[in-house]
């Protein structure tokens, strides 16, 4: 495997869905980004911006309509066959948002966690039990929990089970799709710290999808902002969070309330108007043109490409 260069390279990845009456929903449209080995890339955006769809195309849970995804020096198939899953599931995994619906209620926790290594012949039957016990302990649960069912656990504990299931195969790359949104604040920190520790000990590369901007900033090395299926800005997490460039990023971050009453009182409210439009029939305009406070003629005529602006990439005509 190459050690230099990115671990994941997405080149103009699109995922379109056909709707009745010949319409096309461009959930993800020509997304390009790289993720370096051992990097945590945070991905933020409103619901409907295509974050989850993009994450799923990276691990083969959704087919790609166009574009390429490279895993190291290997091109991932646009549509996974069962063989591809067998090959890549040990290298890339996903942690899901909803710890309630993503665990099979009829399997014990031990069966859920053991399923990966069992299918991939990673351990003999005897070793499997030890392996499961080891992983339960690693994510802060008790080895005795293996014989229980998911409904016996709280949301935070279930999310730990989901993490153990994803990481037991020791993948290189993990897509975490809103792993903490369903959890209480006090438990969010437990799960975030756990992910951080496991990332350090296993050398993981993570795509961390979430809508909690402060948390993404805290967790991530770099941060990408999605709007209607495309990336509008990507750069160092602190740079993007503290000095946003793209008008959408600015509005998104100014809408994020901070747990500090004095700051909140002195804040000049700039609320973004309207709602995210439907990702059908966008044509060639900048996807943000309909809500942008700084919209120009060029924005309606041509979609801006991602260009380097200072220390990051921004897709906006303002910076040309």
């Amino acid at each position: 495997m190459m050690t230099s260069g990115p671990l994941i390279r997405a080149k103009s990845v699109s995922r379109h869905f056909s709707l009745p009456r010949g319409e096309v929903l461009r959930a993800v449209d020509q997304m390009s980004l790289d993720i370096a080995p051992r990097e945590i890339l945070g991905l933020v955006g409103e619901s409907g911006s295509g974050k989850t769809t993009f994450g799923k195309t990276l691990v083969g849970l959704l087919d790609r309509t166009q574009g390429e995804v490279w895993f190291g020096d290997e091109l991932l198939p646009a549509r996974y066959t069962p063989k591809d899953f067998a090959r890549f599931a040990t290298r890339s995994q996903m942690i899901f948002q909803d710890p309630y619906s993503s665990l099979n209620p009829r399997m014990t926790v031990g069966e859920i966690i053991a399923e990966g290594p069992r299918l991939h012949d990673r351990a003999s039957r005897a070793n499997l039990k030890d392996l499961v016990a080891e992983w339960l302990a690693r994510v802060g649960l008790h080895p005795d929990h293996a014989s229980r069912y998911p409904h016996e656990f709280s949301g935070g504990q279930r999310q730990r089970i989901g993490i153990a299931r994803a990481l037991i195969l020791e993948p290189e790359f993990v897509v975490c799709d809103e792993p903490i949104s369903a959890l209480d604040v006090s438990v969010q920190a437990q799960v975030v710290n756990l992910l951080g520790d496991l990332k350090a000990s296993l050398g993981l590369t993570l795509l961390f999808i979430a809508h909690d901007l402060s948390m993404v900033r805290y967790v991530s090395d770099r941060m990408g902002v999605m709007y209607l299926g495309t990336l509008v800005e990507i750069g160092d997490a602190d740079d993007v969070f503290f000095e946003p460039k793209h008008p959408y990023t600015k509005l998104l971050i100014s809408a994020n309330p901070e747990p500090d009453p004095r700051k909140e009182r002195s804040r000049t409210a700039t609320t973004i108007k309207g709602e995210i439009p439907s990702p059908t029939g966008l044509g060639n305009a900048c996807p943000f043109a309909s809500r942008c406070p700084k919209v120009m003629e060029a924005c309606r005529a041509e979609r801006p490409a991602l260009r380097p602006v200072e220390n990051r990439l921004v897709a906006c005509h303002l910076f040309e």
Binding site: V187, Q188, A189, Y218
Partner: peptide, 20 residues
């Protein structure tokens, strides 16, 4: 202290409340 404080650089490690 379980929430990110939006301060510069990652000076802060989140301190979760143990247990439930």
């Amino acid at each position: 202290s379980a929430m990110p404080q939006n301060q510069d650089r990652r000076a802060q490690r989140l301190e979760p409340i143990a247990g439930s």
